[in-house]
Nucleic acid binder design. Structure first.
Length: 558
RNA sequence: CGGGGUGUAGCGCAGUUGGCAGCGCACCGCGUUUGGGACGCGGGGGUCGGCGGUUCGAGUCCGCCCACCCCGACCA
């Protein structure tokens, strides 16, 4: 591309209100443009960089033979894997933007996969993606708009799934290595069967707005909402008899604990949620109980129950199962789906609601006074909580850049094996947010002069060629010829053929950050060729014109 | 959802007691210049976020709304 024909120019000053250094540079150099909060357009440089990053990712992830598909940008709610969104079609049906695509792929698999001969198969797509966020910030680092490279690995059974999962995990590590980004997998939560099905890849970055919990002792890492942690008995008192007490105006844990003058850890917190399920299953009310000083992890509860989304229950829905909002407890509720945190059975003599306005019960004990349909880990860990290994969990800031999800038996999808038996199809799905990955790299790989991509394959061009204008016209014609030759040899070149002064051109080259630079000038030609220099630093070397392709081959490895 | 801040040319910003809409960069033309953001002369570009109000007169004062940025809290 010739800079004289470029659609955008560089900005001397970044748009106001952009704090992150890398993002400021992306905007100044003309990679991206902010259109609205968290909604960015990719300009030609940014689109190219993302395209090349995606090519690199496909290569390293082994997607060369993948069969391309394209899922529609909007999906009916029951295929998105997400909860309801405000988008509706003209007939009033709920539609969803975004989502993993896994359920939509299941539709394709159900219709087309019959035989073991069709497996394994890999489908892939790269498409604009939407991920809403209450408070997007940091440009592409946490944008709502983006582009997702997704691959769907269809496999004949659970062991093949585990093998593929291992392979893909290793390849992801390689990819992030090549991006010089130290991303690692973190646990994203366990599902109804107690298995970790999803893994998020996390790039630690001080500027990141996502948080994980990390154990410095054993290396355990997990999403904030998914982290497992040790529970300890809050007291080892013997169970005392139930005791109903009047607790007027105490509908929250806070007010209750203050009224009774007890720590919140001696209370049971009742949380009513309505679970929405995929596949047309009727929503159900879930009554979750955690210790009063804890918060419920919706991530854990979702995975435990198989719900795709949870919403707070209305007072009417709570009353329908015989509970009283603010004074609810699991005692005496016959039909409710009660789930209690594993800490509750370890905590004797809690204060819980009496299911009567203005009253609570003291000395409520799990097992003696009530039981739940399930006792499980449903409370959210906080920094400082103890890791299962015993050390303290630390919170780490960063960004989620990729997601892997395992489906050992994709809903309703089966094939006939060699013996004629029906077997479930397994799916491993990968999602990689391309622009977010680019933004992470921009935050890490920059200096006071601009962006500094770690390699040509992650930069928008292989080479940045700067022509310094002359009176003789010789550099001009040599540069044009070299531009043609390099292009014919398969190198992509950003050719600065503008008439601007050298300072402008060098500064723009530093800002854009292509790692390999060629300068064509009268001086260099006098010295026997063109100058070859790396953005990262070091001296310029003069290379004879005819040796430039060979020098590039050595530098770029292609 | 709460608190704070900002909306003026493509970008960054000034605009005094209410009295002709400005500066730097960028852009266009001509000329000079060319190894680290050159210079001269000339030029173009505005619904001052929107709507309403006060006033002879509003970028400026008042009201409502919108957008964006920052901080805080999501919640039982």
């Amino acid at each position: 591309m010739r800079m004289s024909q470029r659609f955008t120019t560089t900005l001397r000053e970044a748009p106001a209100g952009v704090e992150l250094a890398g993002q400021r540079l992306l905007l100044r150099a003309g990679y991206a443009q902010n259109l609205s909060a968290g909604i960015l357009a990719a300009l030609p440089l940014g689109r190219r960089a993302a395209q090349r990053l995606e090519t690199l990712a496909r290569e390293i992830l082994g997607l060369g033979e993948a069969q391309e598909i394209e899922l529609p940008a909007v999906l009916p709610n029951e295929l998105s894997g997400l909860g309801a969104t405000p988008l509706r079609d003209l007939a009033g049906r709920g539609l969803t933007l975004g989502g993993s695509g896994d359920l939509a792929v299941a539709e394709l698999v159900r219709a087309h996969v019959r035989s073991h001969r069709q497996l394994p198969a890999v489908l892939a797509q790269s498409a604009p993606a939407w991920q809403d966020d209450e408070r997007p910030q940091g440009g592409w680092l946490h944008s709502r708009s983006g582009r997702q490279l997704a691959s769907f690995h269809l496999l004949p059974g659970a062991s093949a799934l585990e093998k593929e999962f291992g392979t893909l995990s290793t390849r992801l590590l390689h990819l992030f290595d090549r991006c010089e980004l130290s991303a690692y997998p973190v646990e994203a939560g366990t599902d109804a069967s107690g298995e970790d099905r999803a893994v998020h890849w996390f790039a630690p970055l001080p500027q990141g707005a996502d948080t994980i919990l990390h154990c410095p002792a054993c290396g355990y890492s997990a999403d904030l909402g998914a982290a497992r942690f040790q529970r300890q008995p809050s007291a080892d008192d013997a169970p005392l008899p139930l005791d109903k007490v009047a607790t007027p105006h105490s509908p929250t844990i806070e007010t209750l604990a203050r009224f009774l003058n007890i720590p919140t850890a001696r209370t049971a917190k009742a949380v009513f949620l309505v679970a929405e399920f995929p596949g047309g299953r009727e929503p159900e009310l879930i009554f979750a109980v955690v210790r009063g000083d804890r918060e419920l992890s919706e991530t854990k509860l979702c995975r435990l129950t198989g719900a795709r989304a949870l919403r707070p229950a209305s007072d009417a829905e709570i009353a329908a199962v015989g509970a009283v909002p603010g004074y609810a407890s699991p005692l005496g509720l016959e039909d409710a789906w009660v789930v209690v945190d594993q800490e509750i059975p370890l905590s004797p003599n809690l204060v819980a609601g009496a299911n009567e306005a203005g009253y609570h019960l003291r000395n409520v004990n799990y097992g003696r006074d009530y039981t739940a349909r399930k006792v499980a880990d449903i409370a959210a860990a906080r920094p400082g909580e103890l890791c299962p290994c015993g050390a303290e969990l630390e919170s780490v800031a960063g960004v989620f850049v990729a997601h892997l999800e395992r489906h050992p038996a994709l809903g309703g999808c089966t094939y006939w094996d060699e013996t004629g038996a029906e077997q479930p199809v397994a799916l491993l799905s990968l999602r990689l947010d391309v622009y977010r990955l680019l933004a992470c790299m921009a935050e890490i790989h920059n200096d006071e002069r601009g962006l500094n991509w770690p390699s040509a394959e992650t930069a928008p061009f292989d080479v940045h060629m700067t022509l310094l204008s002359s009176k003789t016209g010789q550099p001009e014609s040599e540069a044009a010829r070299l531009y043609e030759r390099l292009g014919a040899a398969g190198y992509s070149v950003l050719f600065d053929d503008r008439g601007d002064s050298p300072g402008v051109k060098f500064n723009d080259a530093d800002l854009i950050g292509v790692p390999v630079r060629i300068t064509v000038s009268e001086r260099a030609l006098r010295n026997g060729g063109v100058e070859l220099k790396l953005r990262a630093g070091g001296d310029a070397a003069v290379i004879p014109l005819e040796q430039v392709p060979a020098a590039l081959r050595e530098l770029l490895g292609k």
